[in-house]
């Protein structure tokens, strides 16, 4: 009988992230430098670099999501809700995706409630929104709309696009993810699951945060909505 313990990758998940993050940081820095030196935005080199930047950010995003889920599963995630100024929070989130949007000629449209402050874990919600905007960039035709407003005692963040909207299958699977059902098909699985779990951590007065997917909205395409009590 085999008495050797089974290999356990989770042991190394947390410890190897330090090195991976350093590598990602250096790659990101280099690509940004190439982009800055690349000249006009229409060249093929510029487009390639922008694509590379996007891929690096995708790896970074996935890494954070995996690690966060691992920590949440073991009660190790240091959840801390702090007062965020909405305009500043939104602009910082947009700065993550701006180079990608520029290279693809996608317009970003902001509609932010003025003088609005809300309590939430800035890192988690930033992760959700950046992921949603990256996703929208792949499906939109020309514009992404980021709207933040207080609605019925909760903060609602909407990422909308003018693409052809979510297919019915995704709307259904999205609902499944929000209920915490484990499904593992395609890359949208991790992102939505992470978003649902992270939103749910935000609790106030018996109410918990949630996400939902819709079609329509201002631009007539897909809408990704986070609601934080």
């Amino acid at each position: 009988m085999n008495t050797q313990p089974k290999p356990d990758a989770t042991l190394f998940l947390a410890s190897s992230v330090h090195d991976m993050k350093n590598s990602i940081s250096v790659m990101l820095g280099s690509v940004q430098r190439f982009l800055a030196q690349a000249g006009p935005e229409q060249t093929e080199f510029h487009r390639d670099m922008a694509q590379m930047l996007y891929e690096i950010q995708l790896i970074n995003g996935n890494l954070i999501q995996l690690l966060t889920l691992y920590k949440l599963g073991n009660d190790l995630y240091p959840f801390n809700a702090e007062t965020q100024e909405i305009a500043e929070f939104a602009h910082t989130a947009v700065s993550h995706v701006q180079p990608l949007l520029n290279s693809r000629g996608i317009r970003i449209e902001l509609d932010l409630e003025e003088n609005c402050y809300w309590e939430f874990d800035g890192d988690l919600v930033n992760g959700i929104i950046v992921n949603a905007m990256n996703n929208a960039a792949n499906y939109t035709r020309s514009t992404i709309h980021l709207g933040v407003a207080t609605v019925a005692g909760a903060l609602e963040i909407r990422v909308e696009d003018d693409g052809s909207g979510f297919p019915q299958r995704m709307l259904d699977e999205g609902l499944a993810a929000m209920r915490g059902v484990d499904f593992s098909t395609g890359s949208t699985g991790l992102g939505l699951y992470f978003a649902a779990v992270s939103a749910r951590l935000h609790r106030n007065r018996q109410e918990e945060g949630s996400i939902r997917l819709e079609n329509g909205g201002r631009l007539g395409g897909g809408c990704f909505i986070v609601r934080l009590p």
């Binding site: 993050k21 350093n22 990602i24 940081s25 990101l28 820095g29 940004q32 970074n60 954070i64 500043e88 602009h91 910082t92 700065s95 993550h96 701006q98 890192d123």
Partner: peptide, 12 residues
Amino acid sequence: LIKPVTEAILIS
């Protein structure tokens, strides 16, 4: 600040 640190994040 969580890596990677970008200009926009640092300035804000």
